[in-house]
């Protein structure tokens, strides 16, 4: 009996130690990113628009300035309410004091400068696929944006999701760099895949999630419940989605559907960002969306 109890305690301790090890932060290889240039702010602007940083990090309200990343928008989920933090270059309340490497680890690995996990409401789950140089350029661009001293608000999450370390186990289970859509892709489809799967993170809203919040790769872009309000995020793949490449590209450029309804809700800021990119980039996204739906 005593031996059995001892065995159980040992097992529990081992399980705990394993969980602790697996849940630790896994930053980028410093050597691999050491060769990056200091970053080109002009290129970074395009990354900023494609990655949609402002959609979540600008102030609440539809009249918010998409260059002032003071945070405060609320995102309801099955796990609680996330509050987007201040990521303006303010040294105290934003990211003004961050190094390029810290920024890269935040965006591409979901790790804060003090080594804590970010929740995957922050789509590093997509940005992990980005080119590190693009994120270095993004860093250079974001440091040129206006600073704001609004303090970040804490998330409002239920147990056990309020234990940040548990996110490490989630990452161990689900955080992957692989592309979702694979096979022989045209040049446009490949560029579109990069824009969509790595930067614009279309799937984060348009793909349904499993019980632990991981995207269901088998129903990629097939539409999902709206986590933060009524209605559904529409399918942009599957039989119900019948738009042409021109329809998709025109929608991203103008906010107009093929039936001339006008974009609204959480897609409106996405269109506001994407319409500022070269049309060829939107055509590439369209090519990818159609390829993903095959």
């Amino acid at each position: 009996m005593r031996r059995a109890v001892f065995g159980l305690i040992t097992l529990a301790a081992l399980a705990g130690a394993t969980a602790w090890m697996l849940s630790g932060p896994q930053p980028l290889d410093s050597a691999a990113i050491a060769g990056l240039s200091g970053g080109d702010a002009e290129s970074g602007r395009a990354v900023y628009l494609a990655a949609g940083c402002a959609s979540c990090h600008m102030a609440p309200g539809t009249d918010a300035d998409p260059l002032l990343l003071s945070g405060g928008r609320q995102f309801e989920s099955d796990f609680g309410t996330f509050l987007a933090p201040n990521i303006s270059p303010d040294p105290d309340h934003g990211i003004g004091g961050w190094t390029q490497e810290q920024f890269l680890n935040a965006v591409m690995r979901g790790i804060s400068p003090d080594g804590k996990h970010y929740y995957p409401a922050f789509p590093y789950t997509s940005y992990i696929r980005a080119e590190p140089q693009d994120i270095a350029d993004l860093y250079a661009y974001m440091m040129t944006l206006p600073a704001d001293a609004t303090p970040s608000q804490p998330h409002d999450l239920g147990f056990p999701f309020n234990i940040r370390r548990s996110v490490g186990l989630w990452k161990w289970l689900y955080l992957r760099e692989d592309w979702i859509v694979t096979g022989d892709l045209t040049e446009a489809e490949t560029r579109g895949r990069y824009l969509s799967e790595a930067l614009a993170h279309c799937a984060e809203c348009h793909t349904p999630r499993g019980a632990l919040g991981a995207l269901d790769h088998d129903r990629w872009l097939m539409g999902a419940p709206n986590p933060s309000g009524r209605g559904r995020i529409p399918a942009i793949a599957g039989d119900s989605f019948t738009w042409s490449a021109f329809d998709i590209s025109a929608y991203l450029a103008s906010g107009l559907t093929p039936d001339f309804d006008v974009v609204g809700g959480s897609m409106a800021p996405v269109v506001n960002n994407l319409r500022q990119l070269d049309r060829a980039e939107l055509d590439a996204i369209a090519a990818y969306i159609l390829r993903a739906g095959q």
Binding site: S254, V262, G265
Partner: peptide, 17 residues
């Protein structure tokens, strides 16, 4: 005109169900 439609849809129209 489209922008003016969008401004209202963004703030006041739910996603379709």
């Amino acid at each position: 005109v489209g922008q003016s439609c969008q401004a209202c849809h963004e703030a006041y129209r739910d996603e379709a169900s």
